[in-house]
Structure formats: C-alpha cells, structure tokens
Design a binder for these strands. Structure first.
Ligand SMILES: [Mn+2]
Ligand SMILES: [Mn+2]
Ligand SMILES: [Zn+2]
Ligand SMILES: [Zn+2]
Lengths: 141, 141
DNA sequence: AATTTTTTGCAACGTTGTTGCAAAAGATTA
DNA sequence: TAATCTTTTGCAACAACGTTGCAAAAAATT
C-alpha cells in the first residue's frame, strides 16, 4: 500500500511527502467519497487544514481524485479510475448520495444518460447525482 | 406585478412585507436563477443579509422557489411552477448552467432521464445539471 | 553533503451561512 | 382607527469553509 501510494505520486510528478501519502491512503481505505472535513477528522492534528486544502487541489489537478457535486453544497472527492490525466478528467459516471448513512459513492459502471436539450443550447458536461438508500443501508436499515 | 407578488405571499400564508415583495420581484424579473449574492447586489443595502437568507429559506419551504444544485457548489434558486406546494416540491426538470454568461436556467420541459442503478440501491431523487453554452450566448458569443 | 526546488505551517483575512434577542412592522380585533 | 397580538427584521456574535503571503522545513537534485 505504502508502495502503491508513493508510485501514484511519482507518476504524477509530485514530491512524495508525508501528508500526500496519508491523504491518498485515506482515499484508498474509504469506500465512499471524502470531504475536506472528513480528512481533517481522520488525520487528527497530523497536518494543517491548509495543507489538506492544497493537497486536494493538487490531486484534482493531477487527475488522481475528482470532485463530486452534491445537492447539500459540500464538496466531496473520490479516486479517479485509470483513464484520468492531469488537467483532463473523464469520470462520466453517476454519483449516489445515501440519505441514510450520508455516504457518497461513485457508480463507476452507470454512465451518464443522454439529455435532449432545447434548440440553441450546447452541452459540454452533464452531472447526475441520485439520492436514496445505498446497498448497505438497504440491508441493515 | 406588485399585486401578483402580494397574492403569491398571501396564498402561502406569509405576511406581506417589503423584503419579501422585493425579493420575489427579483425572481419574476430575472430569466435565470439567482444566488443569495445576486440578491444582495440587486438590493443594495435595502435589507440585511440575514433577512435574505431567511426569506429564501421560507420561500423554499412554501414551495415558491426551489434550489438548484450546481457543480461549483453555490446554491441558486428559481421560481417553481404551479405544481409545487409547501414542503413538497416536484420540479423534476433538468438544469442548465452556461459556462459563458454564468446563468443558470430551469429547462422546465426537459424531464429527468431514468437511471438504472446497481442491485440494492434505491433512488429517491435524481438531479441533473448540464453545463455548456446557453441559447443567448450561442447567438451572441 | 551542499544546493536548489517544492511543500508545509502559521497568521491573517474573506466569504458564506446560522442563531438569539430586542425593536419594528404586519395582521387581527374591537 | 386604535389597541393588541403575532410575525418579521436588524444587529451582533459566532462558526465553518476556503484563500493567500511568507518564512521555515522537507524533498529532490547535483
Ligand atoms: Mn466519481
Ligand atoms: Mn428549476
Ligand atoms: Zn447508506
Ligand atoms: Zn449564457
């Protein structure tokens, strides 16, 4: 794990630092998406708030994580799949927010459905966020 | 107009106050959605920031306006169509954010497409936000 | 090991949104 | 219309979130 994480950082031409390794590990160990606040809690006072913000920004720029729009106005992040490169994301999958446990998941295999826009509108990107009850909460409510 | 706005407030069992009338008028005069900040600018220092927040909350609760999730994490609001009631919205249409002018529009006639979720997930609500170039900006870029 | 480059922590600041409470405005009643 | 009751507003204070500049520390390069 230690190794995988360091390799990811090197592949993105990033210095391998303690904070970056730890934060990237949090994503690997989490099954859902993480918000800045989650990481702050997970890391105790290992590193500064600002470092977390900057690390998240850097990871997004490098195509390591992507941000997920949610209805409640909190930015969440999740690991990208292989295909993403620096400055050029293509995570075109649906996201799911569970009303019960609050977790946010990437539905990596559910692709964005086509939307028929009115005359004159041009689409560049479509975000789909479904909310409801996730698999785990459906079993153990 | 003055009249229409006052009637809407009365129909929702709200006191007809100056701020509520003005803010509701802003929505009627705008073709796109409005964020808290937009209203703050439009109103100068006619009323307090807090009043705007509370008015928006109240309008959402009463089914007068609905909030629109956007990718950039800013809450925007737009007038509801007839069908919405207090505590029970049903604006199931697609929203569009223009990358050029920054405006957000309700595409009232574009309904939310069905999404096939993985086994075990239950959907309660689906939000679709398309970004790109709007009709006006397509003509006058 | 020395030097250069990058990252971090700290302090300070701005924006957004919330809450409690007294004063003001609106609704109701007589 | 005036008196009373009810709701809304403005103010102050606060919290969460996010950004920036700069010196110190850590990582990479030589
Ligand atoms: Mn995702
Ligand atoms: Mn709408
Ligand atoms: Zn769940
Ligand atoms: Zn436009």
């Amino acid at each position: 794990m230690e190794k995988v994480v360091a390799d990811t950082l090197k592949r993105s031409q990033l210095s391998v630092t303690d904070s970056r390794k730890r934060i990237l590990e949090f994503f690997h160990h989490s099954d859902g998406a993480l918000a800045h606040g989650d990481i702050e809690k997970l890391s105790g006072d290992q590193f500064d708030r600002v470092t977390i913000y900057r690390t998240l920004q850097t990871f997004v720029e490098k195509g390591i994580i992507h941000s997920i729009p949610t209805a409640d106005n909190s930015i969440r992040y999740a690991l990208c799949q292989q295909e993403c490169e620096a400055g050029h994301h293509h995570d075109n999958h649906v996201h799911f927010v569970c009303d019960s446990c609050g977790n946010t998941f990437c539905l990596n295999h559910v692709t964005i459905p086509p939307v028929q826009l009115p005359e004159g509108f041009t689409s560049k990107q479509t975000d789909v966020v479904v909310s409801g009850i996730c698999k785990k909460c459906g079993i153990n409510p």
